[in-house]
Design a protein around this nucleic acid. Sequence first.
DNA 1: CTTCAATTGTTGAACTTTCAATATTTTCAA
DNA 2: TTGAAAATATTGAAAGTTCAACAATTGAAG
Lengths: 147, 147
Amino acid sequence: MAKPTKANTPITEHLAYLLAQANREINRQLELRLSKEGVPVEQWRILKVLSDGNGHSMGELAEAVLLNHPTLTKMIDRMVSDTLVYRLQDPNDRRKVLMFISDRGKVLCKKLNSLAVDQEEHILESYGDKSTSELKRLLESLIDSSN
Amino acid sequence: MAKPTKANTPITEHLAYLLAQANREINRQLELRLSKEGVPVEQWRILKVLSDGNGHSMGELAEAVLLNHPTLTKMIDRMVSDTLVYRLQDPNDRRKVLMFISDRGKVLCKKLNSLAVDQEEHILESYGDKSTSELKRLLESLIDSSN
DNA sequence: CTTCAATTGTTGAACTTTCAATATTTTCAA
DNA sequence: TTGAAAATATTGAAAGTTCAACAATTGAAG
């Protein structure tokens, strides 16, 4: 008889797959709401990170919004065109560029936040308070354990 | 005093963000392993779904491997070129195309499976048995509750 | 039956992302 | 202090994805 292994496990039982599936679904829902303002999820993330009012370098920002470097550069180009954010050279380290949110960006970010909160509330309703916070806890700890 | 809201919640506390972050990290690890065989994660998923030996229509497959339709068509084009899979018209419904895995595809799939199992075991080690199964359970139930 | 709507899959154009190479500035060791 | 290595951001070409339109087939209502 063959040795029992995990090799033939259906794909739906792999953690990597479940994460991809859940992410896809939740992201789709969020995308749908944000599309009311014509903004991709990544731009919302950028605005949200910048909305502390401080300057953030491109590297820092790329890490925070889960984009790699060249992709972020080009997305920021678009957002600068839309005057949602602007660039300033870092006076302390002239290799760096510091990104700031504009007034227009702040206004948009507020609208987006409330659309996103809508979604979180919708999830809470169908999925439950307890499951949600437990899931968040486990995800955080998974991320920690992966570094 | 301003009404307390969730609007200013840091992005790192949103479920959508945590999912994206965890997915990105786990996916990156898997990608790294599969790159030993020069295969993207999506192709592994396709091979795995087809490795039941049955024919699967493009629509069914797209759903299962989390790709949208045109993207799958073009990825399958590449895999047909690499003779990992092949197309047959469905005799019962000639709108449909049925995809099958080739022998070469089966051999490759086996190698990929063991690379993926490696990863799952690595996660189990650092993250723990209990957390992993609990996380899987919660993800499944989140996906269920989103339909 | 016949015709019109729905389903299934592909295609081409537009857009986005990625990889590798580049330019600039800073760091640090000799 | 100088020169090599590291860090930071951008660019251009190649590759991939997406959107909208299309083609083919089936289903179903009149």
